[in-house]
Amino acid sequence: MTLFVFFAVLGAAFLHATWNALIKTGADKMTGMMILTLVQGGFGLVIALTRDFPEAAVWWWLLGSGVFHSAYKLFLAYAYEHGDLSRVYPIARGAAPMMVLGLSFWLLSDPIGGMEYLGIVILGCGILMMARGVFSNAESARLVPLALGSAMATAGYSIVDGLGARVSGDAVAYVAWLFVMDAVFFTPICVALKGRAVFTSDLRIWGLNSVAAFASYGAYAVAVWAMTVAPIALVTALRETSILFAVLIGWLVFGDRMDRQKAVAAALIVGGVVLTRL
């Protein structure tokens, strides 16, 4: 992984933490996800129409991506209904690279060195430590399976999109179409669960979640591009530095408490990132 790709993925991680924080601040998380998905899908369609139409083989990857992304947002929205950003986010994002790493032994051929594996493991330990307060602080245990479901979907779309973008040969077009597919799958699910009230939300809610949508689009566009030029498992793990950004946003912007456990976990995350660069 080159230094340029490294910092690009770090920037994407910051954007990812930002859009999650925006969704968490909303009163109805599913409504926020729905607006985000519609805006992303519309913007994706505009971008897609400026590119060459994907070949037939690419559409299988895009369909799979749409399913995984929809599942990810569904689990994440419900998880945020039951827990704080600093608890749900670490579990949801932290388990994903461990899953991708395990699957990479059988599904991927990207070369990963020993220090990179060590970095991923330490990064994962820091993320898991960040999430242990679910039980020690008697928080809602219901968020755990929901967050893990989100992590499984994240692992799924990380592999599907990394390989699909390579098959496509055009990461920009692939990302645009995957967000279109995401909207096609996720919209009817939200309407079935929440009714048509989502379409009548006020302009402030639409504006807030539209900002989240563009942050999410930019974050994932960079990540998918990075997976075409660097090992998928490594990019996936490096993206999880968004945990550190989420903790800082919660502390500096929302006034969340910064205790020793969070500080140690953040230090492990930074240490894991450093090791991926050795």
Rank of each mutant, 00 (worst) to 15 (best):
N20D: 01
G255E: 14
F6D: 04
D256F: 02
T37Q: 06
K73L: 15
G114D: 08
Y157F: 13
A147R: 13
M130R: 13
R142V: 04
S136W: 05
R166F: 04
V191C: 01
M99K: 08
A71D: 09
M99W: 06
P188K: 10
G149R: 06
F185T: 08
R142E: 10
A265W: 15
S158Q: 12
C190W: 15
L118D: 04
W251T: 07
F14C: 11
A221S: 14
I269E: 09
W59Y: 11
A92P: 09
A267R: 10
D259F: 02
T2M: 08
L45I: 02
P111L: 05
L143G: 05
E116K: 10
L268W: 07
Y174T: 02
R260F: 08
W61F: 12
S140F: 02
Q40P: 04
L163W: 10
A155K: 06
G42D: 07
R51H: 14
M227I: 09
W59M: 00
V198K: 07
T241R: 00
W251S: 01
A13C: 02
A237M: 02
S136V: 00
G162E: 08
V253W: 12
F53M: 06
A176V: 05
F185S: 06
A246M: 05
E116W: 05
T154S: 12
G94P: 01
A27P: 12
T154L: 05
V172D: 12
L49F: 15
A57K: 14
A237Q: 04
F14E: 09
V100G: 00
F135D: 08
S136E: 03
D256K: 10
A176R: 11
G102F: 03
V274H: 05
I243C: 03
F135K: 12
V58Y: 13
G94L: 01
R260C: 00
L123R: 09
Y117V: 15
A57V: 07
A48M: 10
F14P: 14
G94C: 01
G41M: 13
A13K: 08
V273G: 02
P90V: 00
G44Y: 14
M227Q: 15
L63P: 09
F7R: 06
A230N: 08
I112M: 13
D28A: 01
S140R: 14
F105Q: 09
E81H: 08
G113I: 01
T37W: 14
F4A: 11
Q40W: 13
G164C: 02
L128S: 04
M181A: 15
S210V: 11
D110Q: 12
A96V: 01
R93S: 08
V144Q: 05
A176K: 10
L234I: 15
A263C: 04
V134M: 00
A27K: 15
A223L: 13
R257M: 09
R239A: 08
F6T: 03
F75P: 06
P97S: 01
Y78N: 11
D161C: 01
G149I: 02
A265C: 04
